[in-house]
Simulated scan of single mutants.
Amino acid sequence: MTKTKKSEFRPDDFVVYPAHGVGKIMSIEEQEVAGFKLELFVISFEKDKMTLRVPTNKAAEAGLRPLANADTVAHAMKTLKGKAKVKKAMWSRRAQEYEQKINSGDLIAIAEVVRDLHRADDQREQSYSERQLYEAALERLTREYAAVSGRDERAAGKEIEDVLVGRAA
């Protein structure tokens, strides 16, 4: 039995897993599960104190992807500068859409959620669920932006905040 193309991921690579955001591949290991040998990526999400094992042959199906390239990050930052687009649909429907965008792992979609849910100090209060979705999206965006740009998360967060505040002015 021959192996198909060797995986594009290697230990120490940063990757994005849609449901959890940025993680780091710690190793690629073989495990026997129900009598079958499986090759697995061992991915650490340090901030969440979580380790995930993803079969290498199911990685693409699971949505595992490399960090965004500089163009995608620039597009995401440009998206943040845009005007918030708030649909008139009921909040439960919008919340579901925001949740799907966050869990898609798509950096542009996540930036849209951050843009649409960001509130300047002089705007109305956010509900608890709005705040939770905003913070989840902001954290995902910040982690990937920090990993791509080589900055620490605090510096990346400050830059994103500056863009958001700057657009309101």
Rank of each mutant, 00 (worst) to 15 (best):
E29K: 04
E125W: 01
G35M: 05
K101E: 14
R115C: 08
Q132H: 01
E39F: 00
K88M: 11
K3A: 14
R10G: 15
R119N: 00
G150W: 04
R53N: 11
S149Q: 14
M90G: 10
F45R: 07
L164W: 13
M1E: 01
Q126W: 03
M77R: 01
D116A: 02
D48G: 09
L52W: 09
Q100V: 06
K49Q: 11
M90R: 07
K78H: 15
K101A: 07
K3N: 08
E32T: 03
D13A: 03
L80W: 06
S127I: 06
S129V: 07
V15P: 10
K83C: 11
E32K: 03
P18H: 03
T142R: 15
V86E: 15
A109C: 12
T142S: 14
G82E: 06
D71H: 08
L164P: 13
R151M: 13
Q96I: 07
F41K: 06
T72E: 12
E29S: 10
A70N: 14
D48L: 11
E46V: 08
T72S: 10
F14K: 12
E139M: 14
I108G: 09
S104H: 08
L141S: 05
I25A: 05
G105D: 07
K87S: 14
Y134D: 15
S27L: 10
F36A: 15
A95F: 00
I25S: 11
K49L: 07
E8N: 09
K58E: 14
R53F: 02
V163F: 08
V86G: 15
R151V: 13
K47G: 14
Y128E: 00
L38C: 07
E161M: 04
A146T: 08
E125L: 03
G105F: 14
V33H: 03
K81N: 15
Q132N: 12
G82S: 11
E97Y: 05
A74G: 09
E139V: 01
Q31G: 09
L52I: 15
A137S: 08
H75A: 10
S149M: 11
R167L: 03
E97N: 02
R93Q: 09
